[in-house]
Amino acid sequence: MSLLVLQSDFRAWLETGSAQASSAFAPEAQPGLLVYQNNYRASLMACLEESFPRTLAWIGGRAFRSVAATLIDARPPDSWSLDHYAAHFPVALAKALPDDPEVAELATLEQALTEAFVGPDAVALTADDLSHINWDTAVLRLVPTARMLTVTTNAAAIWSALASDQNPPAAAALTTPAQLLIWRAEYTSCFRALDRIEDELMGDMDNGIAFVDVCRRLISALGHAEGIMTAGNWLGRWTTDGLLINIA
């Protein structure tokens, strides 16, 4: 038996635990094979439980582990990083619990916060930096960990309550979908809701947007005085939030 075939047979055993898969190995190997299969499933289960503590708290261990076991049965890990396996869990939750959409959205938010936590470093602009910028030519860009997430439920409020050991609200659908901005400020992952205009601007800031265009669009939407004031307020908030880099 070549090494490739042996490893393929071993994989089949880990994935299925079936008598057919174990028959590729000697009878005396069976106790050891059980150890490896237990390790395989336990490490994936532990990975999911550690990656989604709020989701686990929200739906309880029994429901959580049932969906996790279904995912483990259906989808083996294929990356060297165990953390990458967690990215599949929100989709598995959406499929398993279609009548409870807040669960998958809560898990998606947790996953996004985790990804931001280990995302690329960047030096965010400070208020002091702003005084040296030519605003006629300045182009705004977001820190590389920033991403937007659409939610249709109050998953964000549930996350916040669970994270602060408060009683979470009952699950509820939002009257209209909301956009959440997720990013890392220094070493802390953050999120907040965006209003419609800020959401549109953030989308464009991924690739860089001229500050004069920000002003133009706000003036168009809100009128001259309020548009200019809003641009100034948002610039201040984006800076305080640690969202901006490389104004050039």
């Binding site: 071993f10 994935e15 083996p76």
Partner: peptide
């Protein structure tokens, strides 16, 4: 040890047969 086959990673330190082929690999 080994962990991965094409499209699969066990995330465990799995045993090798101590053969000439395995040694070469």
């Amino acid at each position: 040890s080994w962990s991965s086959t094409p499209g699969f990673n066990s995330h465990d330190l799995l045993p090798l047969p101590y053969t000439a082929e395995a040694l070469s690999i």
